[in-house]
Every structure is written in C-alpha cells, then in structure tokens.
Design a protein around this nucleic acid. Structure first.
Lengths: 381, 381
DNA sequence: GTGACTTAGTATCACCATGAAACTATGTAG
DNA sequence: CTACATAGTTTCATGGTGATACTAAGTCAC
C-alpha cells in the first residue's frame, strides 16, 4: 500500500487559525480585510493569524485585485489546492467507485473497480488497492473517506448494510490497517449531505434537507449548520412515511409507505403489470407522455413525491430541499404532478419551497465520501 | 402604569459571567467545583467570575452540603429567586391569562381578565392594566412576555392571528408605550416550546418536538438546542400534513389534512353526525369505551395522530416528542389506537419514540410567555 | 508628474481573561 | 491531635486580543 504520502496537515490548527483556514477554503479567495469583517476580528489579528498559514503553504497570496474604487487593492488569499488531496470511495453491491479530490472537493481523478466478492475482508482489500493505485498517479493523498448504504458509527462499525449483506461488520477495523492514511467510514447519504453542505448547492444554507429516490428513499437533514447524525440518521426511516392509503404493503407490513410508491423497484412492479415484464425505468419514463398507463403510474408516484416534499417542508421547515438520486427521472418526467402533490398539502401561507432537482452519478456519491474525509480531518464537524 | 420596578439586571453580563449565571439558573444549585467541571474552566476562573455575581445579589451561597466522602464540603450557589420577577400573558379570543413567575419560571401569581373587545388597542390597554395590577401585588417585575396564536416578528408585529381577527397589527408598538418594563411579543406555541426547553420536560434535551392539538394543530421543533424560528415556525403548517386519503376537506381545499382529523372542531363535526348535536368533546371521549360509534371516531383520530407522530419522528428525528394542548384528551382516551398509528408507519429498526403526554391549562400557556421574556432579556437566544 | 486622498495591510503595545501552581479552608478517618 | 482529602482562593506568567499609529499601494484632480 505504498503511496507518496507526507504527514497530514502540519498541526490540527488552533481556534482562530482554523476558522480563517476554513473560511478561505469554503468561501475563498478572501482578502485579509474580508476575513476581518467576516470573522469579526481586528485587522491586526488577521495579519498575525494569516502569516504562519501562508508560511506553511496552506494559504497562498493571489495577485492584488484591481479594485473599482480608490485605495490600496486587496490581496486575496486562497487555499493551496495542489498540495493536499483526498480520496472518496463509494461501495455499491457491484463495484467500488473512487475519486481523488482537492481540499475543495474538486474531482481530479476517478476510477471504478468491479467487486468480485462482497465479503467484507475482500472488499477492504479491493478498496485499499484502488486507493493505492490512485495515490500512485501522483496525488499526495492525506486521508480517505469510504461510504456505503447503511448506518455507520464514528469508528466505522457497520450495523447493517442490506444491499451489501453486511451486518455487524467492523469495516473500519478491516480497512484501516491496509492504509497508511487516516480513514473515515460514513453512511453514503450523510456523505452526500456533507458534500452539499460544504461545497455543493447548499453551501449558503445552514438549514436544508436532502431527499434521494432510487432503489430506496434516502433523507438527510441539516439544521443550524449541523448535520443530524443520530442513530436513525443513516436508516432513512422516512421511507416508511405514510403517503397513500391505497399504496402497496412494504417489507415491514406497512400500507402506503413512501417506499412502496417512490422507489424504482416499486415503480417497475406497477409498470410490469400494466406494460409488460421487460420494461425498464428509463422506458417507463420515456413512454409516459404518449402512453396513458405509463403516465398514470408516473403521475401517481410523482404526486406522492410532492406530498412527501410538502411533509418534509412542514415538519423540518428547511430553507431548501435538494432532490436527487438514481431515480430522479421520476421528478423530471412527473414535474407537474409533483408540483400538484406539493400544493395539495402545503399551507398556502407558508413560504414557497426552494426545491432543487439534481442529476447525479457515482462520481458525486464518491465525492461525498471524500468530503467526509475532508470534514473529519480538516474542517471539523 | 406605575409599578415597583427597579432597573433590570445590573449589566447584560459578559461572556463567562453570563454562562455561569445561566448554568446556575437552569441547572442550579451548583458548587464552584461543579461549575468548573461543567463549563470547562479552571477553579480560579470560577472564583473570579462568581464573586461579582454574588456581590450583586444575583447569586446566593447556600449552606455547605454535607458530602458523603472526605474533604471540604461543597458550597452550592443558587440564583436569587426573590429579587426579579417576570410577567407572562397569553391572549386568547375570550380572555387574557397572566402569570408572575420567578427567574426560574415558577408561577407565583396568576389572574384572568375577560376581554370585552378584541380591538388591538383595547387589548393592549387591558394587558397593561393586568400587568400593572400584578406588579402592585409586590413583585418587582423586570420584563413582560405576551403570546398569541399567530406569527410574530422579533419586534412584536403580528402578521396574522386568525382567532383574534388581527392582521398586520403592530401589537408591540401598541403595548410597549403602556409599560415601563421591557416587552417581548411571541407566538404562543413557540413560547410553550421555550418553556419546555429551558424549564420543562425537555430541559435535558437539545433536540425535541412539541405537538399540540386543540382548536388547531400546533408544532414546534428544537434542534441542536435552538428553536426553529423561521417565518413558517408560527404558522404550524403541519396542520396540512397528509394523514388520511379518506379525511375531509380543509379550509384550503386539501384532502385528508391533519387539521380535518385531529382538531376538536373536526372531531365534534363527526361526533354530531353520529351522536347528536349537543355532544361536547369531553362527552365524546367519555362515551368511547361503551359506545361503538364514539369509539370509532376517537380511534380513527388517535390512529391518525399516531401516524403524524411517526412522521415527525422520521422527518425531524427528535429525541423526544411532547404531546399536549387542549385536545390532549384524545391521546389519552385513544392511547392504544395512537400507538398502533405510530407502529403502522415507523421503521422497525428505528429507536422507539420517547413520547410524553402533558395535560396543560392556561397557566402553562401564560408561563410560556413569561419564559419568552426570561429568554429574551436574561438567558439570551 | 505630483500631491492629496482612500483603503489594505502591518507593527507595536497595553489589556485582560485564562490556567497553573501554591496556598488556605474545612471537612473525615484513624 | 494528626494525616489526609477535597473545595475554594490567591498569585502570577502567558497569550490572544483590539486600539492605535504606521506603512503600502492604488486613484483622482490639477
């Protein structure tokens, strides 16, 4: 597992130095003057704090920016992004998707490695191999984040990952000895939330929700700038929210759960009864405009999705809701029905819902895992 | 409006002095040793910070407590509760309910004043009269909190209070000149949340939800120790959450909203169709054990309430849910059905819901308003 | 161009909240 | 009565902070 790794960030950075470094990372480039205003400290303190950060190479001074008005131009400071890199790995039931990112979570390399076995020890070996291979491409990788579908403790113990067939697996303990860099194991959905929160569409929001649809229904919530991380957070219990008394019965015996209506398997189950066994998710969505039976299936599900979004808006009161996941095509094909579903259960006096639909792929999921590492080892939770 | 008022708290208290004063208020009595441990400061700092607080009379030293083990006994510090008092006023469509509380929100006096008119200026006059009368009983009232049903801005502007018929009323501006103490106007439900958070059942929780049923459905959420106070927070938009496709139609044209099922008017509407026009809420609940028609109405509603609670648990993920309000009898009479409603839509892997049912009256609503004042002018938000 | 002006960033210094350490106070155990 | 344990106080050095005066680097008017 050799890789061109130098020690991680010089020192874990004390209070104000940490605040400055994080502010520049997340909102940079920033001049000293801007930092003083944003962090509410005196100009003198900024000078004192910034100096060692520039000397250590963590921050770099950019060329003075020509100001519009009078006075000395500002000298923006930015994070040095060519020095430290991070690996993010998303484990699915068929493959390992890995990316290398900068400290600002920009993807600079990626790879996919098919999984021959789902045996935890073998997967750990495969993940270590993939990380070593990426590091050999010349990136100084400082830490790794690995994500998977299921609740994970801070130490990397997986209580249950149904799609992988893992139960009570201490994946962190399996993988950590195979790496020579710090490792964090995270729930995949929470990792995606972290990416949106620090570097994504929710960067300027400290109160938002993320909802994913696909093989399951995923949900994460950020309030007051903090990600909700209780034991239930990785379970996506929202999948059992009541949406339709006429819905099917879920694996736990509930009637009309979100997961009996919104997941891709649920959609395909209805579609195959109506349109034939061979139909795929894409075909179902494509046929909706012309085929009444397909349209009915899509619209019913999209309407229910709107109800779910309205419920989230009323209960969690987020300022923004990001909707994404492999099954996001439903929200696009059924956009009108989705909007009707929202309106059917939204208080008319309430603020309109700021809903953002995102199409993402494996890269974004893996990037989320990299952000887990950046958050854990650099930004701090 | 004369009242025996001395200036409010000496000084707004700086950082660590404030932390110490608040910790003793909320969790006292506490010895200096305990404060050092809890606030993670050195013993010397505690001595330095505590001294002026005792000298100013805000804190008092209690008798040394005989310790179990060896060593010098601890000398507990407690908040002086006989010096500063606060008034809380809840305005309903029929009356003003007012209480005087200590700094620790213990009710020491209360009164009710019927409202002859709902004209805002006249109500303001009545509130001022009630506050003056309470102050004349010998309590040095430092600040007042007033709560009502509807969204209120920080300055006391009421955008809409349907039960009072107030729309765009600057009640703070009307009332403030009539008082000689600081005033805060608050949403009634948020005020109740504040009382639970600082001095009530949720004191040890920094993440909980409060749900009330009665003439409407009220909802408040605390996450990370902070009360959600967006513009929608006072609207209780949760009243439109979808619970039952077979429910009635609400005033906004939605089908199966929580408010068409759970509110006392909704319950009575169904009961009068089945059991006669004269039945009251109490009678309906009392008859449920023996009368199948009454039982069906109660159980259907309680089941739906359980679904609502499960939805809150899944979406907001609180560690505790407090259920209360004038219509709380439904949750008691229909306890079994409520529990079935929860189980019908709760992920089996999720942690059990810590549900607390509270029976409260006007006193508790008014006390909430007093806590609004204490929070605003003493504890800080 | 030159000097007045404006704004960014730096150097110096007094301040003060903090923790470490030594000390005092007040109890129990033998 | 002495040894000991724990609470609380005093003293003092430290270090992060803002105020202030300063330097740096530009624009603008003439």
């Amino acid at each position: 597992m050799s890789s061109p790794v130098t020690p991680p960030l010089p020192v874990p950075l004390d209070g104000m130095a940490h605040s400055v470094a994080v502010d520049v990372l997340l909102n940079g480039p920033l001049s000293r003057k801007q930092l003083a205003t944003r962090l509410r400290i005196s100009p003198g303190s900024v000078t004192r704090v910034v100096k060692p950060l520039v000397e250590s190479g963590l921050l770099v001074e950019l060329a003075p920016v020509p100001t519009a008005g009078m006075g000395r131009p500002e000298e923006p400071l930015d994070t040095e992004l060519r020095r430290d890199f991070y690996v993010g790995v998303k484990i699915t039931e068929t493959a390992i998707h890995a990316v290398v990112t900068t400290l600002r979570a920009q993807v600079v390399a990626e790879t996919t490695h098919p999984l021959a076995s789902l045996e935890p020890a073998e997967v750990a070996q495969d993940v270590a191999t993939v990380i070593a291979e990426l590091a050999q491409r010349g990136y100084a990788v400082r830490a790794a984040g690995v994500s998977l579908g299921g609740p994970v403790t801070a130490e990397g113990w997986v209580s249950g990952a149904p799609l992988l067939g893992w139960y009570s697996v201490d994946f962190g303990a399996l993988l950590r000895p195979l790496l020579n860099i710090p490792l964090v194991v995270d729930n995949d959905l929470l990792a995606l939330v972290r990416a949106e929160k620090w570097f994504g569409a929710a960067k300027s929001y400290d109160h938002f929700a993320l909802l994913t649809i696909g093989s399951g229904v995923g949900y994460g919530l950020v309030v007051g700038g903090r990600i909700l991380e209780g034991p239930d957070a990785g379970l996506s219990t929202i999948a059992h929210l009541p949406l339709d008394i006429g819905g099917g019965v879920c694996a736990q015996g509930h009637t009309g759960c979100a997961e009996t209506i919104l997941t891709t398997p649920a959609l395909l189950g209805r579609a195959r009864l109506a349109l034939g066994d061979s139909i795929t998710h894409e075909q179902l969505l494509a046929r909706a405009p012309s085929n009444p039976a397909a349209a009915a299936i899509v619209e019913t599900a999209a309407f229910a999705l709107g109800k779910l979004i309205a419920s989230i808006a009323s209960v969690a009161m987020p300022h923004k809701i990001i909707l994404t996941g492999d099954g996001i095509g439903l929200a696009i094909a059924g956009a009108a029905a989705l909007q009707r579903g929202i309106e059917a259960h939204r208080d008319q006096r309430a603020a309109p819902i700021d809903l953002e639909v995102q199409v993402i792929g494996f890269t974004e999921w893996a990037r989320g895992a990299a952000v887990s590492a950046i958050e854990t080892f650099v930004v701090g939770r």
